[in-house]
């Protein structure tokens, strides 16, 4: 059987809200080491990889590996019924066709359970290579969200260029053009407000803003986001979810014809 309990149930609510528009369905792969999900968007342009470690949960038990096919829109409907302060427990018997979600209020005076119907999903697992990136940028997640949101109102694609001067986001559209440059900034006292640029070599890549904007739905999960860039490779956008794990997004670049 599988059982995972998390006192801070709001984290699960935020996770599903972050993913549900990008991926309509996918498999929660559960094992003794935790819960993972790998899924592509419907146009196969980007990949989402979620890792939640067993020791990040308040209680975790998984007797045998299972792939639980989840429709994220439906999971979102159920999680919207959980209070922000609720403890959430996920439960499934071996080979079950439902996932039980149990919500307990902070003072234990309200307990509810919902069964989510599971799906059978054929999913292709992609191998994500470990690699060194030409540029790694850590910045406040709210800053990333603001940049991609602002640029989405001007253009469809963004040229991200990392140089010694900083990291520049450029777009153009019917109304005109926009450039936003961020510089290395470690002066804020709080580490989560700092911008740290680690540049091995200059790099410039073009991406569809629609997806970068969609990734920023994970902003409530983490104060910082990390962007990693290498020439001719997908951008890697990572949010650390406290001690629980991480959400990683990979977006294939636009390539000049």
């Amino acid at each position: 059987m599988f059982e995972a309990r998390i006192t801070q149930g709001s984290v699960l609510k935020k996770l599903v809200e972050a993913l549900k528009e990008l991926v309509t369905e996918g498999n929660f792969d559960v094992s003794s080491t935790g819960l993972t999900l790998q899924a592509m968007d419907s146009s196969h342009v980007c990949l989402v990889s979620l890792t939640l470690r067993d020791d990040g949960f308040d209680h975790y038990r998984c007797d045998r590996n299972m792939a639980m096919g989840i429709h994220f829109g439906n999971l979102s409907k159920i999680l919207k019924c959980a209070g922000n302060e609720d403890t959430i427990t996920l439960k499934a018997e071996d080979n079950a066709d439902t996932l039980t979600l149990m919500f307990e209020s902070a003072n234990q005076d309200r307990i509810s359970d919902f069964d989510l119907k599971l799906m059978s999903i054929e999913s292709e697992h992609l191998g994500i290579p470990d690699q060194d990136y030409s540029a790694e940028i850590k910045m406040p997640s709210a800053e990333y969200q603001r940049i991609v949101r602002d640029l989405t109102s001007i253009g469809d694609t963004v040229l991200i260029s990392a140089t010694k001067e900083g990291i520049k986001f450029s777009t153009s559209g019917d109304v005109g053009t926009a450039n936003i440059t961020l510089r290395h900034n470690t002066t804020p006292e709080k580490p989560e407000e700092q911008t740290i640029i680690d540049l091995k070599e200059p790099v410039a890549l073009t991406f569809a803003l629609r997806y970068l904007n969609n990734f920023s739905k994970a902003t409530p999960l983490a104060p910082q986001v990390k962007l990693s860039l290498t020439k001719d490779l997908p951008i890697f956008v990572e949010y650390q979810v406290g001690d629980l794990g991480n959400v990683r997004f990979f977006l294939a670049p636009k390539i000049d014809d």
Binding site: S43, L126, L251, K254
Partner: peptide, 14 residues
């Protein structure tokens, strides 16, 4: 003009 690449052309199936 530019073309949107697919993610699977970078990460192999496994």
């Amino acid at each position: 003009k530019s073309t949107q690449a697919k993610i699977s052309s970078f990460f192999g199936g496994g």
